[in-house]
């Protein structure tokens, strides 16, 4: 089997595509540089793939970075078992379409003990089914570098994270003792057991992500676009009510309206927004005037102040 993808094949569809504007081109170049550097310096890289829009951009950039070769590392999806059904469908279709090496990991212990967002609360559930699961998967694969789609504009503690973010053998992040990072010269020296998380999208903002998706015609999970969907209102969030495992609490009724999601995670913890944006143009237009941040729809960030930093120190991505 050859590893060459479309090596000599003309790409007629792209010939009509306008070139990227200088802003997106600069971000793309930087991300490709990081992908290549990590792939060259580390023995066992892996790409964390969460199926969301940032992961979709990350995957697209990885394909670009290694063209005409294949993406030279596996994709790892930490599946909590509580993802939107459409996400899983989309994941499997993408892996097939791009001939990707996809590794799916679920925390067997958590599953056996029936850890759910409802029974254990969002903090403990996230700890077991995401953070612990990720550590298990990284250890099992003996990965020494893991690409992630985190952006510095997402959250205050991420604003200080390096592009190569060093982790101890037990996956801890020490924000007070990060390696200095100058120019685009990255220090990839690690000992056995140590690893880095590499963030090619560090300098991207949410608007950049959407504009790049549009410019590059990157496929996305349909949940990002408005459609009439069932939901219940809970703790100020609109929760998608499609999965039969979502039990109605007293007083809750299933409503229907045009809603969409700005970020995608576990469906019981991800809030929708009311929206009529069914196209990328409309989504971007909404975003330009949005007055709340995308993570506003994420329950896990709200548990306590500095909760993301705490999770990251413990090994959450």
């Amino acid at each position: 089997m050859t590893d060459v993808i479309h090596a000599a094949e003309p790409r007629p569809a792209s010939s009509t595509k306008p070139p990227l504007d200088p802003h997106l081109k600069a971000l793309e170049n930087e991300a490709i540089h990081i992908f290549r550097e990590v792939a060259a310096e580390f023995e066992r890289p892996v790409m964390l793939y969460s199926i969301g829009k940032d992961s979709s951009v990350l995957l697209h950039l990885a394909r670009k970075a290694f063209h005409p070769g294949r993406v030279p590392f596996p994709l790892l999806h930490v599946d909590t078992g509580w993802k939107f059904k459409e996400m899983i469908r989309f994941r499997d279709e993408i892996a097939r379409k791009y001939e990707l090496d996809l590794v799916v990991h679920t925390n067997a212990r958590g599953k056996a003990e029936n850890v759910t967002p409802f029974t254990h609360g969002s903090a403990l559930y996230t700890d077991i089914m995401k953070t612990e699961a990720l550590r298990q998967a990284l250890d099992a694969g003996k990965y020494d570098a893991a690409f992630g789609g985190a952006r510095r504009d997402e959250e205050a503690s991420r604003a200080k994270e390096r592009i190569y973010s060093f982790r101890t053998p037990d996956h801890r992040w020490d924000p007070r003792n990060q390696r200095p990072e100058l120019w685009n010269v990255y220090n990839g020296m690690v000992r056995k057991g140590e690893s880095v998380r590499a963030f090619p999208l560090s300098n991207w903002t949410e608007v950049d992500i959407w504009r790049y998706i549009q410019a590059e015609d990157i496929p996305l999970v349909p949940l990002y676009f408005a459609a009439e969907r069932p939901f219940v209102e809970r703790d100020g969030m609109m929760i998608h009510a499609e999965d039969p495992r979502l039990e109605r609490l007293p007083g809750e009724t299933v409503q229907h309206d045009f809603i969409r999601f700005r970020t995608l995670g576990c469906f019981p913890l991800t809030g929708a927004i009311r929206s009529r944006a069914t196209t990328l143009d409309e989504v971007i237009a909404e975003l330009e005037i949005a007055t709340v941040s995308e993570r506003q729809g994420r329950a896990i960030d709200r548990d306590q102040s500095g909760s993301m930093e705490k999770k990251k120190r413990e090994g959450y991505f």
């Binding site: 209102e233 100020g236 969030m237 609109m238 809030g271 927004i273 009311r274 929206s275 009529r276 944006a277 143009d281 409309e282 971007i284 237009a285 909404e286 330009e288 005037i289 949005a290 007055t291 709340v292 506003q296 729809g297």
Partner: peptide
């Protein structure tokens, strides 16, 4: 809740 549930209206000139 009001921030979450508020409808966001696209503005034509923001595109």
């Amino acid at each position: 809740a009001s921030a979450t549930a508020a409808a966001v209206h696209p503005a034509a000139d923001a595109v």
